[in-house]
Nucleic acid binder design. Structure first.
Length: 657
RNA sequence: GCCGCUAUAGCUCAGUGGUAGAGCGCACCCUUGGUAAGGGUGAGGCCGAGAGUCCGAUUCUCUCUAGCGGCACCA
């Protein structure tokens, strides 16, 4: 028991330091050693990050965060955001500040103002930030009573800040941070002064619009993004990393490799060129085989269906603005389009599920028939917002490797596990390992009872855990008809995309009146599991292009091998090699151009062709071939049949190995 | 859909109030060369679409369309 004034601080190594009264983190660090005092950034007091200048009044467990700790970077970036805000306020005092957190790789700050920031403004701001860093302004924490704080910010014309205070729970203190003349509402903690952020370790990246509080009903603010690091070296490494990553961008590679293109007349829909479509064909063959192995039966359902069905399914109500709707009519002889009032409305399917239920409903199903795993490479159309479209990742016409599993409630966990096994197999085959698993739970707007949701969410969590997968919850992100598992992959630029999905649905079978006869002779509702492994071919191929940086494994490569001759003397031999490669089922091309071998090698290497077969006089004479593989500067001369066999073996798809 | 930026040759990009240029690619010719660019010649553009200002617009202004970066929405 410590006396009233004494403060005992327990360090991570278990040692205890006693003080005769309140003590700051800075004092403690100084007492431990001058080296630590220099490196110290923030102190953790009973698990909570505190400023070094804040007085610790009670016995506590403490640890000191230095520049070397990962947490330091986040605090540094948060400081950078404040310095950004200070710079903007100095340059344009009328601009209102709102929020500015640290994010992955950097920070941002949202401002409210009429005039947009220009690139020149960004330069000025960055320059001013450097000045503020050099000023080495002390960052001072103060607490303020709630009412006073609201008035304080209102008087300054900072209405957003006043609004934020109102949303802070009443049991939490209102803290302000001052640096120079700039005062911001902030939870903290911050570093002792602005110079802790180096003047050459950060960079402003871009400006973008962002809604106040993330709500599209609110006004739009101007967000400035920046990146910040411990050292200039780290900053440069990051900038280089981004540059490198941009080279893998599937939109760039897709054009360079001639895989696909987009054009205005078909916004958001892909023109697949023959090379790109070869990847698709191979993937489709592969997943079809995997699905068949796993007990799925493939179907094909209509593209265009009466709006009545969509009304019944609930899509008309919930998904209407994303649906392409067409009247069931043709233009008159003059080509004019007049839609009669009573025209039947048809919709291009945005999903396959209602159609699959129609198939399920044909005939009477017994509990013995379940589960039924019904798959379809369904081509769907969704009228995505213009601003959402993004290369292959977000399109308006997409083909899913979709399937619906109709099952009894007692089969849910087994079916989930079974799906997770399939999923793991497929992603392993593709060499994709960095997958984020998320369990999306009940949203505010939802159908079904809480008990049902409780059960469904538990079932998914249990199946994930049983499959040994680590996951995080995405609260409130579930579909209105049920919770879902989301499988996220990251693209070259660091954005994450949901590919595979697994959703529980108690609602749709009910709305569309699907039932089966149970053991008890009564009718029961089946549970419907919506699931996709790739998600959509479009997005998945986009991810694969970036994942492989265009260097597809042999089984997926659009062109697997190119045969090139050294001189025109070997044209006949080269032609015969090419024919043998084709006969062996390989995707081969031939290069008889009047170019030097150096040139051909360079060009085909740039085109990311996995194998180049070179034939000169020696090869033609001995019936051999010299093989050069992508990524290697070595070459190897082999008997032609051996070389072909080797390639054939290597190009066997994972499902046939 | 919202905020901002961009749109010139197949690709990457210069450029100008007086209707355009480079490199790569492409075509033809010379060259027959052994593993990442051999040489020469040449053909390609309604300067995204529409309107306005001007004697004259690819250039300035406005509208539209598409793309890009975010936000919102979502596989």
């Amino acid at each position: 028991m410590s006396s009233k004034n004494k403060v005992a601080l327990t360090l991570p190594d278990g040692s205890v330091r006693e003080y005769n009264g309140p003590v700051t983190g800075m004092t403690l660090a100084n007492d431990i050693g001058p080296g630590l005092a220099k490196a110290a950034l923030v102190i953790v007091v009973n698990g909570e990050q505190w400023d070094l200048s804040r007085e610790i009044e009670k016995d506590s467990n403490v640890s000191i965060i230095t520049n070397r700790d990962d947490e330091a970077l986040e605090i540094l970036r948060h400081d950078a955001a404040h310095i950004l805000a200070e710079a903007v306020k100095e340059l344009w005092p009328d601009t209102q500040v709102t929020i500015g957190p640290a994010i992955e790789n950097g920070f941002y700050y949202d401002f409210a103002r009429d005039k947009p920031f220009t690139p020149e403004d960004l330069e000025r701001i960055e320059q001013r930030m450097k000045e503020i860093v050099e000023r080495n302004e002390e960052i001072i924490r103060t607490e303020m009573p709630r009412d006073e704080a609201v008035k304080f910010f209102r008087d300054m014309g900072e209405d957003y800040k006043a609004e934020i205070i109102a949303s802070i729970p009443s049991n939490e203190p209102i803290t302000l941070y001052r640096q120079g003349d700039f005062i911001d509402l902030c939870r903290g903690p911050h570093l002792p002064s602005t110079k802790y952020l180096g003047s050459d370790t950060f960079k402003l990246m871009n400006v973008a619009g962002a809604y106040w509080r993330g709500d599209s009903n609110n006004e739009m603010l101007q967000r400035i993004y920046g990146t910040a690091w411990r050292t200039k070296k780290e900053l440069n490494a990051y900038l280089t990393r981004i540059e490198e990553a941009e080279k893998r961008d599937h939109r760039k590679l897709g054009r360079e490799m001639g895989l696909f293109h987009f054009q205005e007349e078909a916004q958001g829909s892909v023109f697949w060129h023959s090379k790109g479509f070869r990847v698709w064909i191979e993937l489709e063959r592969y997943i079809r085989a995997r699905l068949r192995e796993d007990g799925y039966n493939e179907v094909k359902t209509p593209q265009l269906m009466d709006s009545k069905l969509w009304e019944q399914s609930g899509h008309w109500g919930k998904f209407r603005e994303n649906m392409f709707v067409v009247p069931d009519m043709v233009p008159n002889a003059e080509g004019e389009i007049e839609v009669p009032k009573d025209a039947r409305m048809m919709a291009l399917k945005p999903m396959n599920c209602p159609a699959h239920i129609q198939i399920f409903k044909q005939g009477i199903k017994s509990y013995r028939d379940l589960p039924i795993r019904m798959s379809e490479f369904g081509c769907c159309h969704r009228n995505e917002a213009h601003g959402a479209l993004h290369g292959l990742m977000r399109v308006r016409q997409m083909t899913q490797d979709d399937a619906h599993i109709f099952c009894r409630e007692d089969q849910i966990i087994d079916e989930t596990k079974r799906f997770l096994r399939l999923f793991a197999q497929v992603y392993d085959d593709m060499g994709l390992s960095e997958i984020k698993y998320k369990l999306a739970t009940r949203p505010e707007m939802r159908a079904g009872s809480d008990e049902t949701w409780e059960l469904a969410e538990k079932a998914l969590a249990e199946a994930l855990t049983a499959s040994g997968l680590e996951f995080e919850y995405a609260e409130g992100e579930g579909a209105f008809y049920g919770p879902k598992l989301e499988f996220h992959l990251t693209d070259a630029i660091g954005r994450t995309w949901q590919c595979g999905t697994f959703q529980l649905d108690y609602v749709l079978p009910d709305r569309l009146d699907a039932n089966y006869i149970g053991q008890d002779g009564e009718r029961h509702r089946p549970v419907m599991l919506h699931r996709a492994v790739f998600g959509t071919f479009e997005r998945f191929i986009g991810i694969l292009i970036e994942h492989y940086a265009g260097r597809f494994p042999l089984w997926l490569a659009p062109i697997q091998v190119i045969v090139a001759g050294i001189t025109s003397e070997q044209d006949d031999y080269v032609q015969s090699v090419f024919e043998k490669l084709q006969a062996a089922g390989l995707r081969a091309e031939i290069d008889l151009r009047n170019e030097k071998i150096n040139y051909k090698i360079r060009e085909h290497s740039h085109a990311k062709i996995p194998a180049i077969f070179v034939a000169g006089g020696r090869e033609a004479e001995n019936n051999t071939i010299t093989v050069r593989r992508l990524g290697s500067n070595n070459q190897e001369t082999l008997d032609l049949s051996d070389a072909i066999n080797k390639l054939v073996t290597e190009s066997i798809a994972p499902d046939k190995r």
